[in-house]
Every structure is written in C-alpha cells, then in structure tokens.
C-alpha cells in the first residue's frame, strides 16, 4: 500500500519525540532510518510516473472518465503526504539536534559525541553537517555583544551566588577568583555558581 512506509516513519518520529519528552535531561537521537527514507523517495518517483501515465491517458481518452480522474487525484495526494511525512521526520530530528547544540555549548560537538550517549553514526551525513553549522552559529551568536549574558547558561532562576557541588567525575584543577580547586571524584566544594555552571552542564559536577 502506498503511504505505509511513510506511516512507519511518522511513528518513528513520534517515538523519537516521546523518547526525548520523558527524560528531558539529556537529548538523544535514535538511528537515522536511511533505508526507510530512500524507500519513500523511491515510492514518490514511482507515483510520479504513475501520475504522468494517468494524465496522458486522460488526454488520449478525452472522455470524462471519473475513475481515472480519481485515481490521478489519489496519486497526487499520496505524493504530497509522503513529502510531508519525510519533512516532519527531518524536522523532529533537527529540532533535537538544536537542543543538543544548545546543551553542549561551545564544545566541539562532533568530538563530544564520540563516547557520549549520542553516537555520531546515528546521524546522516547531512545531519552531521547541519549540527556542525548550527554549533558554529551559536558560538558566533554568543561571542558578540551578549558575551556577558552567557546565553546558553542555566534557565532556572539563580537562588544563591554560592552553591555546594559534588564532583561526579575527575575534572582536574580549575581556577576561580577564590583560588584553585582540585576536582577529585566524590569531593565536595562550596563555590560560586557562575564559575562552575559549565561543569554542571557537562556533568562533571552535581549541585547539592
């Protein structure tokens, strides 16, 4: 049946969305369904040929043939639907890529992804390019007049200037205004929030 493949893809997109909706702490993308996408694109080409054939027939027959008209119309609708499903799938994925880029601010995301929860091979080539360009755009945006504001900083209102943090992963030594801290796993520090914001986002520290 025409449209079945596209339906699968939409279900996949929905699953992706739910996956990210539930644990909105970390964004992750499942594998890019290259085959499915290619299959749908092939289907569209086929439908296109069908529609041309039907059109030609109509012109030859010259009679007001309701059946072939309907057939032609349904073919066009199928093509339209397939296209919209493909675009929706890609849009869901690109939205998640955007969130990923915001979250991993400033890091080289391609390197960051290796070994992290997001596997680069789950992205298509075009998506990899997109992610890279988007990260560049964000870096550019953040370094302008708005550098003081730190756009990618925490979006929960700050409560205290100083907070207690626990070190989850060894992160080496950091320098702050109040001296140097040696971040060894399982130790605790009382530090200025704005100094360690980055490290909390990257998962080295936990706020307690």
């Amino acid at each position: 049946m025409y449209g079945d493949l596209a339906n699968k893809l939409v279900l996949e997109a929905k699953r992706t969305k739910q996956l990210n909706g539930r644990n909105n702490q970390r964004y992750a993308l499942p594998m890019y369904h290259e085959e499915l996408v290619q299959g749908i694109l092939r289907e569209v080409t086929q439908l296109k040929r069908n529609s041309e054939f039907l059109k030609d027939q109509q012109q030859l027959a010259l009679v007001d043939d309701k059946i072939s008209k309907c057939q032609y119309f349904v073919t066009l609708l199928c093509m339209e639907r397939n296209k919209r499903c493909l675009l929706a799938y890609q849009k869901v994925r690109s939205d998640i890529l955007n969130s990923l880029a915001w979250e991993n601010n400033g890091l080289d995301i391609m390197n960051g992804l290796i070994g992290a929860e997001q596997d680069t091979s789950d992205l298509s080539h075009q998506e990899q390019d997109y992610l890279k360009e988007y990260t560049d755009l964000l870096t550019e945006l953040k370094s302008g007049d708005l550098a003081d504001i730190d756009l990618s900083g925490s979006l929960t209102p700050p409560s205290d200037v100083f907070i207690d943090v626990r070190v989850l992963k060894d992160a080496g030594e950091i320098q702050t205004e109040y001296g140097a801290f040696n971040l060894i796993k399982d130790s605790q520090f009382f530090v200025r929030q704005s100094d360690v914001e980055r490290l909390i986002q990257q998962g080295y520290l936990q706020k307690i």
């Binding site: 996408v37 694109l41 569209v44 890609q90 298509s124 997109y130 755009l137 708005l146």
Partner: peptide, 27 residues
C-alpha cells in the same frame, strides 16, 4: 540585529538540510 542574523543563518542551514536529504529528490 543578532536575532536577524541568527534567523537568516539558521533558516539557511535548515533549508540546506531539508533540501539535501529530501526535497531535491522530489519531483
């Protein structure tokens, strides 16, 4: 001005992504 720049750039790269992966294979 920075939002304009962002809008322009982002739509350009998003369209590029959609174009490369889907739209250009369409009739």
């Amino acid at each position: 001005s920075h939002e304009l720049h962002y809008h322009e750039k982002h739509s350009a790269i998003l369209l590029k992504l959609l174009n490369n992966s889907i739209v250009k294979h369409m009739p």
